[in-house]
Amino acid sequence: MKTRSKKTRRQLLIRIGIAAAIAMLLIVVVVFAGAFAPNDPYQTNAAFIRKPPCAEYPLGTDNLGRCVLSRVIYGGRTTIAATFFLVAVSFVIGTVIGILCGLFGGIVDRFLMRIADVTLAFPQMVIALAVAGILGGGLGGALIALGITMWVSFARLARSHTLSIKNEPYIQTALLAGKSTGYIVLRHILPNTMAPILTNALTQIGMTMIGISGLSFLGLGVVPPTAEWGSMINEARAYIQIAPWAVLAPAVATIITIIVFNYLGDAVMDYRDL
């Protein structure tokens, strides 16, 4: 039984390693987009409009003669950076709210958790569409629209783990040792709640990416000419029958990135549950 568990653990570590390596590769490519993009993503060329893939333009060109591969690489920077930023901000805000609610309880806890309940009663995209519609187009509006609902999962997770930890004997021992609430949160509660919250963050990356690309596709996120996968698909869908590569390239990039981060999140969750 122990050997089997060890084998499963090793297999999971290999899964995590592979997913993490691909994720890192994607991040490196988009961070150093200038080194990997063969052309200027914003350079239009009337002579090469909707040109199929060739040596100069490996994934062809779009309606304005811009290099699709370069736009996919630069677009990844926008999508991935916005996703990471949103997940990180939601992670911090949600975790702080969750820990404080779990630790102190009371009226603020009840008020915030009822807001969370109401937020969870609606599909995330419906709220995001409504908020993004009110705020108008732009990446900032899309991030606020998605962020309004995103902190909830982190807050609920942090709260439930804090509630289960705060009465543990080691917390009572720290209290008897005269340790302050801040010390107990930083030294005991945070490290012991981090694993499930980090796993949640990893699984949220894929969902957030879909959200940002989805809003951009609907014209409520990133505004052209800025390269972003969702807005690229939206722009190119008008001439999909003439230049399918202009839609397929950002679509495939979105799918691959989401699969990689979801796979990584699942593998980490499985490893944690072992």
Binding site: E168, P169, Y170, Q172, T173, L175, L176, A177, G178, K179, R187, H188, P191, N192
Partner: peptide, 24 residues
């Protein structure tokens, strides 16, 4: 406050494992 009381008394709990932070 617990911190003041802890200067002269300390507890030893039934479940020794859970009286230590598992990460520390």
């Amino acid at each position: 406050k617990c911190g003041d009381i802890g200067r002269f008394l300390q507890m030893v709990f039934q479940d020794a494992y859970s009286s230590f932070d598992p990460k520390m």
